[in-house]
Design a protein around this nucleic acid. Structure first.
Ligand SMILES: [Mn+2]
Ligand SMILES: [Mn+2]
Ligand SMILES: [Mn+2]
Ligand SMILES: [Mn+2]
Lengths: 217, 217
DNA sequence: TCTAATTTTTAGATAAGTCTAAAAATATTT
DNA sequence: AAATATTTTTAGACTTATCTAAAAATTAGA
């Protein structure tokens, strides 16, 4: 149907639309897909030709309904595969992304349906990100930064702001994972670090870490 | 590492070497990968450049050790994925090949190791074909055609000679699958059809079918 | 063994996807 | 409102993988 390159561009535009809330620029896409602006222009013209995006020279680009559907389906597959890797093959959450980048391009309706069912219809992936359904719909959970909690408040870890390898590895090491209940024992006004408790173990985290952990609002 | 096209050519040469027992010709490869002889020549030259095959103009081609290792690894992945699809995702054995053709190109050592372990180290795929280990080794089971059995003999179904869609669908419909014990009740000298029994049900099959079913020798 | 048929290779095109360098358009600053 | 900076597009080149048509080599047959 569509090439991996086309799918990757659509996915990039999809993600950028979601987090900027508007049409996206050539340069932003280039950064996202790790290519050059000229390559992006090239691809945008081909995607426009196929009516997957709405593109006007120099004016940035938006997904068409058709393009958005394809993009959300790739995201769906990516997140289902990440869930499979963690839940069934015992990968840790910092190991799954690159493999899912490959698996998301496998084309088989039945495969993805059966995988969904095998995983018991998960709604969120190992990083706490929502898994879209076939029509691209998903529910956004209300989340706040852990740093916004006051002393003695607690909540459940739903996701991370930063899902870089380094951060995920840090969380791994500290045994922090999605679903954990985190209680704020105390906050240090000097540097905004906080003492927290997870599973009856207590330790302190920097403000940097606390702002990158998202808990149930 | 290597492109999907390269991997597919290596796999084709690997399969042809196994079933012809010698170096393989341009035309045979072209037929196998559904391309034209000129495209094959082109690719062979590139594979030779990379030392994956031994190629002498007009003299056919053989895999190098390096090439054979890559090829057997693709076959390993193909068959593990087919096993996964049947055992875990409830695909039937006539539905798995095309999806496995895609999945076999996913690159991740850990993925294939974990998959192997998740499937409990299967030695044969859903079609009865052996799954090579990391080094390309596998054991060949001795098999004979069902048509060679005499009246009142029985054996276990280990594989099929023909794994075309049509044949697999036929077997599916008749509820014949790998591992079944098949007893020959009678043979009809007129057309070599035979009456057989599987799981306490009896029915007759044509000679054509009987020669395409491989049972334990 | 020479000729004819077949197979294989080369030559030249095409398409996708990428790049660098230069030109064109848009945005920002005096 | 010009001048300058930035962004985007175009032009031209390169790589991989494919094709058709023609040339070259091998094989088979008379
Ligand atoms: Mn991911
Ligand atoms: Mn994720
Ligand atoms: Mn197969
Ligand atoms: Mn198989």
């Amino acid at each position: 149907m569509f090439s991996q390159a086309e799918e990757n561009y659509l996915k990039a535009i999809y993600a950028l639309e979601i987090d900027t809330g508007k049409g996206v620029s050539t340069n932003l896409i280039a950064k996202k897909v790790l290519s050059k602006a000229s390559s992006v222009t090239d691809m945008l013209q081909r995607l426009a030709e196929k009516e997957l995006v709405i593109y006007k020279k120099y004016q940035g680009v938006k997904l068409s309904d058709k393009g958005r559907k394809i993009a959300s389906n790739i995201v769906r597959k990516h997140r289902l595969w990440e869930t499979f890797l963690v839940d069934k093959l015992h990968f840790s959450w910092d190991e799954v992304h690159d493999v899912a980048e490959q698996l998301e391009h496998i084309k088989s309706e039945k495969l993805i349906q059966q995988l969904d069912s095998f995983l018991e219809f998960p709604t969120h992936d190992p990083h706490g990100d929502p898994i879209p359904d076939k029509d691209g719909n998903f529910t956004k959970r209300k989340k706040i930064k852990l740093s916004q909690l006051n002393e003695n408040e607690q909540s459940i870890l739903l996701g991370v702001e930063d899902s870089s390898d380094n951060f995920l590895k840090y969380l791994n090491k500290k045994n922090i994972s999605i679903g954990n209940t985190i209680r704020v024992l105390s906050k240090e006004p000097f540097d905004n670090s906080m003492e927290i408790e997870i599973d009856n173990t207590q330790f302190s985290i920097t403000e940097e870490v606390a702002t990158n952990l998202l808990v149930k609002a």
